[in-house]
């Protein structure tokens, strides 16, 4: 295992190592809120970060498993492609923004605009999410085990949102939908992946009313 102490080692040294090296276990200490920690990792690394990180931690992640033992600033796992990012504390705004794949787990609360423009990522938040979460979300799942703030799923495309707690005013074109057995199974899979154990029937499902964007049922396979 390789260790980086960001009090001593530079962020560039850490990220360059993560980009270049096939070493699959990296331990980062003293991140002290630095930005872009472990951004752009492109192989099957296992990265553990002890402390709070700043903006864009694990951004663009592909394949890697990245755990933050602390809080994450804005844009954690933004544009993630695959892999798993787990934040043990809370996450600031636009967590998982425009993520294409992989799983982001936030064990605390996530702030506003969680999953904005998500394109296939699965996001599981053990706590609450702030306002405008799932804004223009296109594909993937957003699971909220706590409450969701105002304007959830505004201008939603085909992403699926599950909320266990209360929901503020719904965003434009976002509606509550029936929870089928398939949805319960999907939700159970997501919760299990996050290590959470809530009965799936405690959740409600939200999706797009498909009135705001040009949706053609004949092209449903394309979504």
């Amino acid at each position: 295992m390789k260790q980086f102490d960001l009090k001593v080692d530079t962020l560039r040294e850490l990220n360059q190592y993560l980009h270049d090296s096939p070493d699959n276990e990296v331990h980062v200490i003293n991140p002290e809120g630095r930005h872009c920690v472990a951004a752009g990792v492109n192989h099957d690394a296992d990265v553990t970060i002890d402390g709070h990180v700043g903006y864009y931690c694990a951004g663009m992640n592909k394949h890697a498993h990245i755990t933050v033992n602390g809080n994450a600033g804005p844009g954690v796992a933004e544009n993630m492609m695959s892999g798993v990012v787990r934040v043990k504390g809370g996450a600031s705004q636009y967590a998982g923004a425009s993520g294409h794949g992989g799983t982001l787990i936030v064990e605390g609360d996530a702030s506003s605009r969680c999953g904005i423009s998500m394109k296939g990522i699965d996001i599981v938040v053990a706590g609450d999410v702030g306002h405008m979460s799932g804004f223009m979300a296109q594909e993937g799942h957003l699971v909220v085990c706590g409450d969701a703030g105002h304007h959830l799923g505004d201008s939603l495309y085909e992403a699926v949102i599950f909320v266990r707690g209360s929901v503020g005013e719904l965003g434009a074109d976002c509606v509550e939908k029936e929870m089928t057995e398939d949805h319960q199974a999907e939700l159970a899979r997501l919760l299990a992946a996050a290590g959470l154990d809530y009965p799936t029937d405690e959740f409600r499902r939200y999706g797009s009313a498909r009135k705001l964007y040009h949706f053609d049922i004949d092209h449903a396979d394309a979504y």
Partner: peptide, 22 residues
Amino acid sequence: SEFRAIAQLDGVENAHIWEPEP
């Protein structure tokens, strides 16, 4: 604006850290 401005304060490791509501 950024946590790193706070990260150097004494006792920060035991601080209650949160984001102010809009």
